[in-house]
């Protein structure tokens, strides 16, 4: 049984990673067709950096992604704060309204957005893209931040106020440091959501603000060149860099935590075992 499970795991891993490895490998393929291998070349990377229109869409996607993720994280934090700290009238309704886009088909949201923007005369462009992506990212950030905030002792903000903090200082000195990793997770997750979105973007992008996924999608008609593989490989590299940057920070925290434990030999026995348990976890 264990061996069977082991094999399934390996197969799943292969299935997950074969396409990724393929993209990277084929980005160095000299052949103009993706189906045959004709030796190593950096040709597609050169073409990629010469492809102005494609780079322009990458720029649009990055800008939209950063703004949508930033706004979604900030608004998500504030909504989560309200939802976890206060019991107000219409709390359940508010929460429902925020998470609803998770279950509404994106295509419906897209059409609805187009109708609204169209009828109110808002010009389609970066702003409408950001707003559209905000709608799909907000449920994610709100839920992540709610999870993080509800694990905090609810009297911490009051304690900060009692110790002289203005509301802003309560945020910078207590709430932010304690929810930093959740904020980072919110930002990265909503950035990826925005960066890879096609459906909403189809309805909310305007002339000259095509996003990168839309551009690649439209290239299907004219034929995809291995240039896209090069772009893909670069994006994977970027993701890895981010993961390592974040991951290393986490790792350092664990290591530093372990060091502190060593320096505190006279801690009460129950706290030591607790500490070890957390570190192992």
């Amino acid at each position: 049984m264990d061996r069977f499970l082991g094999w399934v795991t390996k197969l799943v891993l292969v299935f997950l990673y074969v396409p990724i490895v393929a993209v990277v490998v084929y980005s160095f393929n000299a052949s103009p067709r993706t189906s045959s291998w004709e030796g190593l070349s950096l040709r597609w990377y050169v073409e990629l950096f010469g492809d102005g229109p494609l780079l322009k869409t990458l720029q649009t996607s990055l800008i939209v992604g950063i703004f949508a993720a930033g706004l979604a994280t900030a608004i998500g934090f504030l909504s989560a704060l309200a939802l976890t700290r206060y019991r107000f009238k219409g709390r359940a309704f508010f929460l429902g309204a925020i998470v609803l886009p998770l279950i509404i088909p994106e295509i419906v949201l897209g059409v609805a957005l187009l109708t609204v923007f169209g009828s109110s005369g808002i010009k389609l462009g970066v702003v409408t893209l950001v707003l559209g992506h905000l709608i799909v990212a907000l449920p994610l950030t709100t839920l992540i931040m709610m999870g993080s905030l509800s694990s905090l002792d609810p009297s911490l903000p009051e304690a900060a106020t009692d110790l002289g903090c203005t509301p802003w200082q309560t945020f910078t000195r207590v709430l932010f440091p304690l929810t930093r990793s959740a904020m980072l997770a919110s930002f990265l997750l909503s950035f990826t959501t925005s960066f890879s979105n096609i459906v909403i973007s189809t309805f909310t992008s305007g002339v000259g603000t095509t996003t990168m996924p839309l551009r690649i999608y439209s290239m299907l008609k004219t034929g995809i060149t291995p240039e896209i593989n090069a772009l893909g490989a670069l994006l994977i590299l970027l993701t890895l860099v981010i993961i390592f940057a974040v991951g290393l920070q986490q790792m350092r925290r664990i290591l530093v935590g372990a060091e502190e434990k060593d320096q505190a030999p006279d801690a009460a026995p129950d706290t030591i075992s607790l500490q070890t348990a957390t570190t192992e976890r």
């Binding site: 911490l156 009051e158 304690a159 106020t161 009692d162 002289g164 207590v174 304690l178």
Partner: peptide, 20 residues
């Protein structure tokens, strides 16, 4: 007057120590 301007401090039942 807001809490932060009152010359008093509170000891919370949960202690409310800042974990970070």
């Amino acid at each position: 007057l807001p809490t932060r301007k009152r010359d008093l401090n509170m000891l919370f039942q949960s202690y409310a120590l800042f974990p970070h």
